[in-house]
């Protein structure tokens, strides 16, 4: 594989896209939201169980490309047990990473496993794929009823 391609499709990303974690519905969730990227047909639904402002459980279902699926899978692992504010802060850091310039320093201590998606910044058209689950999570947290649409 070529260098930039290896960046985009790292082993961890392929693993999470093939075997996504928390890939199920949460029955009677405290919140949920649907995200849709009409450009590529990606569709994701994020479910939340909240306990005292903490994301006690997070899960998702949907169909999409390897990047969006891996991003959703990694996201659910990363935000579980975090407060709404912490989840939002993590999204901000994640957003900075995928929209940054190739070679920018990556805040690996705070991003943890999410850092494997840093290669996305070399492929600007794929930023939406990586961000869709996060936008959908935010919508669920803010209990927005309408479908999140990234176009």
């Amino acid at each position: 594989m070529m260098a930039d391609l290896r960046e985009l499709y790292q082993e961890t990303i392929l693993d999470h896209s093939k075997r996504p974690r928390n890939f199920h519905e949460i029955p009677h969730p405290d919140a949920s939201a649907v995200g849709h990227n009409p450009l590529c047909g990606d569709r994701v639904t994020v479910f939340l169980r909240l306990s005292d402002g903490v994301l006690a459980d997070v899960a998702f279902v949907g169909q999409g490309c390897a990047i969006s699926k891996a991003s959703a899978s990694l996201m659910t692992d990363a935000v579980k047990g975090k407060t709404k504010a912490q989840a939002h802060e993590l999204f901000e850091k994640f957003r900075r990473m995928v929209t940054g310039r190739p070679g920018d320093p990556v805040d690996t201590p705070s991003l943890g496993k999410l850092a494997v998606l840093s290669g996305v910044c070399e492929f600007p058209v794929r930023v939406k794929c990586a961000s869709l689950p996060w936008h959908t999570l935010e919508a669920a947290i803010e209990a927005k009823k309408e479908i999140v649409s990234l176009e």
Partner: peptide, 14 residues
């Protein structure tokens, strides 16, 4: 099979 068209297009782009 097992590859989303978006991933196909990205890999072909490279």
């Amino acid at each position: 099979d097992n590859a989303h068209p978006h991933d196909v297009a990205s890999i072909l782009d490279v």
